[in-house]
Design a protein around this nucleic acid. Structure first.
Lengths: 130, 130
DNA sequence: CTTGACCTTCCAGTTGCTGGAAACTTTATG
DNA sequence: CATAAAGTTTCCAGCAACTGGAAGGTCAAG
């Protein structure tokens, strides 16, 4: 299977699939003409990557998850640990963003937003208030 | 004022301050020996950047905000608009992360996480369920 | 037979820094 | 006063995860 069909089947751009090959994630065979040739197994791995990345796992995590995916003797605990760590990361990011959100919301609310120069947002950024 | 004191005063690493000069954000004078020389005004701008970046504004936004900060004839509406757009961006990111959080939380919850290979997380990533 | 769609490789750019090397100046110490 | 340590300079490379584009080979259709 050529790369563009593989791309369509897994939902990843061809560029990304080539990139995944570069970094050793999915290494397809080659046809006689030098074109990449994706097997069903390759396709499964690409779909796996598409989903893992979609859930926000890092490439390194994906590499680990992919090896666990292929390991019939894996311990689910190993998978769970990766997911749990990622979840905690997301929890932290949400907390950070929420804090920014609160501050920004207040500032935007306080600013009248007209053609005059007085601006609580600028004042806050300048530190003339705090 | 040397760069390291400026760094301490504004809470940014010296490396970052040099980088901000590279990209034309804060251009200090030079001392006779070639060392950078930060004025009070430079310092204000650096502090402004430290805070703006801390609120998650992009460098490009910071550049705009900085020019508005220095513009005594600015319209607060312009500032507000930048902040509002950034806030909406944050809102979107939070929504995205929350959706990931929900999915991951469920998966982590469903996985028993022992030494057996059955794993709802892997199954989800592989797409064998959906 | 040519046109256009595909495919290949390789190199550069994105964001916002951060680390490190090599060389200079200044400051502190013995 | 010599020297060592600390601070400074410039420049180059690298991070994550792609994405865009150039230059060229291949293939299917008309």
């Amino acid at each position: 299977m050529n790369i563009s069909e593989a791309a369509q089947q897994c939902g990843l751009p061809a560029k990304t699939i080539r990139y995944y090959e570069d970094i050793g994630l999915v290494l397809p065979g080659r046809q006689a003409n030098g074109y990449r040739d994706y097997s069903d197994q390759d396709l499964h791995k690409l779909r796996f990557l598409q989903r893992s990345r979609g859930l926000g796992f890092s490439i390194d995590d994906c590499r680990l998850l992919l090896s666990l995916y292929e390991d019939r003797n894996r311990a689910s605990a190993d998978v769970r640990q990766i997911a749990k760590a990622h979840l905690e990361d997301i929890d932290r990011k949400i907390a950070e963003l929420k804090s920014l959100q609160t501050t920004l919301r207040q500032l935007v609310h306080q600013c009248h937003g007209d053609d005059r120069p007085d601006c609580p947002i600028i004042e806050d950024l300048a530190g003339t208030v705090a």
